[in-house]
């Protein structure tokens, strides 16, 4: 939408807008954002009604396939790049110096002519509902955990073809030469998550600014659930054009 068109419109104010109309507008916005989140979250919003019209037949998901359905919400503007999450990940999951399971990218976002805003964007495996890495693996060495949706690795089956690395749109995998297998984030499934009874990952626990909010999409008491459902919160996923339906969401609050 061009700014010039907006300028030509008369400001009618919101005072005269009936609350029903406001609610409908909010509902519509949530529907739209739900669609662009990638589909897996559609049932959380009022998007079910809008699927037929807006989703163009693209993988409509009406309920969560996993329970618990682990997710992570990244509050991007809270991140100060202290890298404690990276250190916690390394020490908890025995990540060698030459690789990483999670990283922080520095962004320089253009906000106006000649002006840019600095932001730090943590990245990790998105545990996609349609993971291309799982699709290409010839021996099921990497697979989608049927219980919790985590994209897991079975190191013993890895033949080292690295096709999953080539297929991952998020650069979330590396070859761990020490174990002769692909290594990746598994939400600390066998380490911190196990210790905490499924409550938190090492990176989320180490973050001093509450950037990484780990949780369960099926648990209304989970912080991640609350953030995703809070009206007015705008969330997005990385590289939505790849249709991978990620379970890591980003927001600015």
């Amino acid at each position: 939408m061009k700014g010039i068109n907006l300028e030509n419109l008369n400001d009618e104010g919101v005072e005269s807008l009936p609350s029903k109309e406001r609610r409908q507008f909010l509902q519509f916005c949530l529907s739209i954002s739900g669609v662009f989140l990638g589909g897996s979250i559609l049932s959380l919003t009022s998007a079910n009604n809008a699927q037929g019209a807006l989703h163009s037949g693209k993988v409509p998901v009406v309920e969560f396939p996993y329970s618990p359905h682990y997710t992570m919400v990244i509050r991007q503007n809270h991140c100060i790049d202290c890298e404690r999450c990276l250190e916690a990940c390394r020490s908890t999951n025995n990540v060698p110096a030459h690789g990483y399971r999670t990283n922080i990218l520095e962004r320089s976002i253009p906000i106006a002519q000649g002006q840019r805003e600095r932001a730090f964007m943590p990245i990790l495996c998105n545990h996609c509902n349609h993971p291309p890495c799982v699709r290409v693996c010839p021996t099921q060495a990497t697979y989608k955990d049927k219980t919790n949706g985590i994209v897991q690795m079975n190191p013993d089956k890895c033949i080292g073809c690295k096709t999953c690395m080539a297929a991952c749109p998020y650069n979330a995998r590396y070859f761990k030469e020490e174990d002769r297998t692909i290594d990746k984030c598994n939400f600390c499934f066998d380490t911190k998550l196990k210790e905490s009874g499924g409550k938190i990952t090492a990176c989320a626990a180490a973050c001093p600014a509450d950037v990484r909010i780990f949780g369960d999409l099926t648990d209304p008491e989970s912080d991640a659930y609350k953030l995703i459902h809070a009206p007015g919160n705008v969330l997005w996923v990385l590289r939505p054009e790849t249709d991978t339906l990620p379970n890591v969401f980003y927001m600015d609050t």
Partner: peptide, 11 residues
């Protein structure tokens, strides 16, 4: 392949 010997088994 890094581990070609696993192909025979797991394929």
């Amino acid at each position: 392949l890094e581990n070609p010997w696993r192909v025979g088994f797991y394929a």
